[in-house]
């Protein structure tokens, strides 16, 4: 992890102690105990600061535009989704779109192989009793998201965090930077296709099981609205064929 990026983040967050916990593809994730505008009553209460650093490789104009667009998109979607029925996302505390900074509720915890993302959890063991129910729950949540007309845009197992509710793990969706509002069947189908492919490449051994559990959960998430579900499925098959059938020259 690059130190000058951390320094840059700290320069935007004067007098706020932050510590880096991970470097994602496009953002640095920090934890802090400081709330931006309220006195923290609870000792040990933590918050997430998500910083999208400028990318040196991109043209500055393109970079500024992408950073702003994605930070704002994420903030808007999180705001809309917070408290929605059957959907769990981190709540948003503060936004600084120009500098690419989001202040979020702390989600997840540490497990044996890192943070408690679904990816790490599925990598823990070959099979666990609660894998099936977890993946069904994730599918269900995605269905509810789609029914609200929201497309995540980057569904992977690293973008699903797990939270302990009592002794049970419950999923929580994060990273809506590529998310957008759309009621098109096409966009939802592509969203599912991206997830299927992510599972295939990240969890190749059990991908069949995982995908079918996700799909069952997705179906259930549509509840009585099975017509909509069928439409998405029909398009989903088309999208799949598109990916596989594409002629590959060169």
């Amino acid at each position: 992890m690059s130190d000058h990026l951390v320094e840059l983040a700290k320069s935007h967050l004067t007098n706020i102690p932050v510590s880096l916990i991970s470097q994602g593809a496009e953002s640095l994730i920090f934890t802090t105990t400081t709330h931006p505008y309220m006195e923290t009553s609870d000792e040990g209460q933590q918050y997430i600061v998500k910083f999208r650093p400028p990318k040196k490789y991109r043209h500055p104009q393109l970079d500024a535009q992408l950073t702003k667009r994605r930070t704002l998109a994420e903030a808007r979607l999180l705001q809309r989704l917070y408290g929605a029925d059957g959907i769990s996302v981190p709540s948003i505390i503060a936004v600084d779109a120009r500098n690419g900074i989001l202040w979020l509720e702390y989600i997840g915890q540490q497990i044996e192989n890192g943070v408690s993302s679904l990816k790490n959890y599925l990598w823990l063991e070959d099979s666990k009793a609660d894998y099936e129910s977890l993946l069904r729950a994730v599918g269900d949540m995605i269905a509810r998201l789609h029914q609200m007309g929201i497309v995540h845009g980057d569904l992977t197992t690293s973008n699903v965090m797990l939270q302990k509710h009592g002794s049970q793990w419950a999923p929580c969706l994060i990273d809506f930077g590529l998310g957008f509002t759309s009621d098109l069947v096409e966009d939802k189908a592509v969203d599912l296709y991206v997830l299927e492919r992510a599972i295939l490449s990240t969890h190749p051994v059990h991908s069949d099981n995982y995908n079918s559990w996700l799909m069952e959960g997705y179906k259930k998430g549509y509840g009585k609205d099975q017509g909509k579900f069928k439409q998405v499925m029909k398009r989903y098959e088309d999208v799949r064929m598109r990916g596989r059938k594409r002629s590959m020259l060169g």
């Binding site: 593809a25 496009e26 990318k55 991109r58 393109l62 990816k119 992977t156 690293s158 990240t202």
Partner: peptide, 19 residues
């Protein structure tokens, strides 16, 4: 070039973070 390559580098970075 700037746009296309930025997209390529971005998805490569995603894959790197993922694996």
């Amino acid at each position: 070039q700037e746009t296309l390559f930025a997209m390529l580098v971005e998805i490569t970075e995603r894959a790197m973070a993922h694996v």
